[in-house]
Amino acid sequence: MRIDPDTFGFLLTDLARLIRTDFDRRLLGEGTAVTPGEARTLLHAARAGEVRQNVLAERMGLEPMTLSTYVDRLEERGFVQRVPDASDRRAKLVRLTPAAEEALAAITRITSQARLRAREGLSDEEWSMLNRLLKKVRSNFQGGGF
């Protein structure tokens, strides 16, 4: 049996791995104050807004304990804080602090560099179409349509 290495799933997996590796290399080369895992946590927290820690872990595809370690370290540096969830006192929300802004600015510069690399050889129209199509595929999987 021959497996096609260029199927949709393999292409997406390879691309995600390559982008992550490029991001990690760039981040470490910049000498930022955060590790790649912490940087991803800050980006996802900024994207989600104030969010429960378990929801953030799920959105990032991480085990809750792994995310907890990242949040602990970010909290120690003052980049995030855990605050009680008014709707469930047992739950904690992760909130970015103003101190995270400088780190996020550095991280977004790095993601911009990676995005430029990704779109090399693509016209503006092709890049726009790729983004539209990827969003459509993502929406096909959202909402639990099983």
Rank of each mutant, 00 (worst) to 15 (best):
F79M: 09
R26L: 07
A16S: 15
A103G: 03
E50Q: 12
E76H: 10
V83F: 04
P36V: 01
T66D: 11
G144C: 15
M1G: 11
N54I: 07
L133H: 10
L67M: 03
R20Y: 08
E125S: 09
S128C: 13
S112K: 06
T7Y: 09
T66C: 14
Q142T: 08
T32P: 00
L43K: 01
M1P: 02
D6R: 14
I110S: 03
L15N: 15
T21A: 14
G29I: 04
V34P: 00
S87Y: 13
V55R: 10
R132P: 04
H44W: 13
I19Y: 04
A86R: 12
R25S: 07
A16Q: 10
A86V: 15
M60N: 03
T111G: 05
R89E: 08
R47F: 09
E125H: 09
L93G: 02
V137K: 05
A57F: 01
R59C: 10
R132F: 12
G121R: 02
A91R: 14
T111H: 02
L130Y: 12
L130W: 05
R47A: 12
T97Q: 06
F8Y: 15
R40D: 07
M1T: 14
P36S: 06
S139H: 09
I19G: 04
Y70T: 00
V83T: 11
K92C: 04
R109I: 03
S68I: 08
D22A: 11
F141G: 15
L62W: 14
V137A: 12
N54C: 10
L56I: 04
R40K: 13
R132M: 07
V71N: 01
G61F: 04
D24M: 09
Q53D: 12
D72Q: 14
M129C: 09
P64K: 04
T66E: 15
D4R: 06
V80M: 06
I107N: 01
T35S: 06
G31A: 14
F8D: 15
D22Y: 04
V80Y: 00
D4G: 05
D85F: 08
N131E: 12
V71D: 01
E126V: 14
R40A: 08
A106M: 07
R73Y: 11
H44L: 15
T7A: 15
L122D: 06
G9L: 08
D4C: 03
T7G: 14
I19Q: 12
W127Y: 14
A106V: 11
F10K: 08
L27R: 01
L130G: 07
R52I: 03
L116C: 08
